[in-house]
Design a protein around this nucleic acid. Structure first.
Length: 105
DNA sequence: CCGGTGACCCGAG
DNA sequence: GCTCGGGCCACCG
């Protein structure tokens, strides 16, 4: 059970049409305060773990961070989320109170 | 081992 | 609204 494995496991638990913040994923993975690792893990996302809905992970501001990884697909993540029914505000932000994943168990 | 970097987050000014 | 500084860990050279 590696650090990455925990992160991937949590991301996989994010339900359809919902989103989670890096900090939230880190917390659920028992890696409180290590949100950067989540970003790094997804950045180094292995193709064999392609089942992971990486697009459902956003930052604490409810925005998407493509800054460093966009390799041609500007709003790929946005498109994927919109395909799941997630609505973006005019600012390009997501309403966390409405779409943030709230794990009950 | 050390230094730099990173899909981040929080607090202060 | 923006910039700076600190923090945690993993990868790369």
């Amino acid at each position: 059970m590696n650090t990455y494995t925990r992160i991937y496991a949590v991301v996989q638990r994010i339900p359809y049409g919902k989103v989670a913040t890096y900090g939230q994923v880190a917390r659920l993975a028992n890696l409180t305060g290590q949100a950067r690792l989540v970003g790094y893990a997804l950045y180094r996302l292995p193709s064999r773990q392609a089942d992971i809905p990486w697009h459902r992970v956003i930052n604490a501001k409810g925005e998407i961070s493509y800054d460093a990884f966009r390799h041609g697909d500007d709003d790929l993540q946005r498109v994927l989320l919109e395909a799941e029914g997630v609505v973006f505000a005019a600012d390009g932000k997501i309403s966390l109170p409405d779409y943030q994943w709230q794990p009950t168990g």
